[in-house]
Amino acid sequence: MRNLAIMEWIRSTAASVEWVTSVCTGAFLMRAAGVSCGRRVATERALEDELERLGDLTVVRDARYVADGNLVSSQGVSAGIDMALWLVGRLHGRDHARLVRRSIQYEPAPPYLADEPEPAHVPA
């Protein structure tokens, strides 16, 4: 955030693109570059209070991703996948987003099932 060249690149790029996205702590970079000023954002849960204390934005809690105009931000890495699929849906339609989800084999399961493999099918 102290690298002025990177902050300027984020600022100038954000001003010239259709969508701006951030994942996890990227929300801090967006704020430092002035891109998220006055907007709603999501960030890593453990850092929500810290980002909010910096001011100039609204941290939305308990949302995996947040869209505010052309700025879309997510809480963390897996939430970033959800955010990216939402954006694919906005750009190319829901059917295409579902196709992308299937092609990357993204089948989210509740956490209590995520570490248990499905039982193998044993023919009778």
Rank of each mutant, 00 (worst) to 15 (best):
L71V: 03
L99R: 14
A32S: 12
V88T: 10
G34R: 11
D49H: 05
N70F: 07
P117M: 04
E52D: 06
A114N: 03
V100N: 07
R64F: 13
A42P: 00
L71R: 02
A27D: 02
A63G: 06
V59Q: 00
S103R: 15
R101V: 02
R31M: 07
R39L: 10
V100S: 10
D68R: 03
P111S: 15
A46H: 09
E118K: 07
N70S: 09
A33F: 10
D62W: 05
E48V: 01
A63C: 08
A32K: 12
R40T: 04
H121Q: 09
L51V: 00
L91Y: 06
R101F: 01
A79T: 14
C37G: 10
D82I: 03
G80E: 01
D82C: 06
R98E: 14
W86I: 04
L87K: 04
V88P: 00
D115N: 01
H96T: 15
Q75C: 14
R40K: 14
D68N: 04
R94S: 08
L99H: 15
L113W: 04
M83R: 05
C37V: 12
N70G: 13
S22Y: 09
C24I: 02
D115V: 04
A114M: 07
V77P: 08
Y65E: 09
R64L: 12
L113Y: 09
H96A: 14
G26Y: 02
P117R: 07
L99S: 14
V100W: 05
R31H: 14
E50I: 08
H96K: 15
V23K: 02
F28D: 06
R90W: 00
H92L: 09
Q105C: 10
L54T: 04
Y112V: 07
M83Y: 11
P110Y: 06
R98V: 15
A109L: 10
L71E: 01
R39E: 06
R98W: 11
E48Q: 13
R90F: 01
P111I: 11
D62H: 13
G34Y: 11
G38Y: 03
E44R: 13
G26C: 08
P119Q: 12
D115F: 03
A46T: 12
A33C: 12
A84I: 08
T58E: 13
P108T: 12
L87E: 06
R61M: 06
L113E: 09
A46G: 08
V66T: 06
A32P: 08
E48G: 08
P111D: 08
A32R: 12
A114T: 07
V72M: 07
F28T: 00
R90Y: 00
A27S: 14
L51E: 02
G93V: 03
I104H: 11
A42Q: 03
Q75N: 15
V72C: 04
S78K: 14
W86C: 08
R94C: 06
D49G: 04
E44P: 01
G80K: 09
D49C: 04
A109C: 06
D95V: 11
L99W: 13
S78V: 15
C24L: 00
E118N: 05
Q75H: 11
G76D: 11
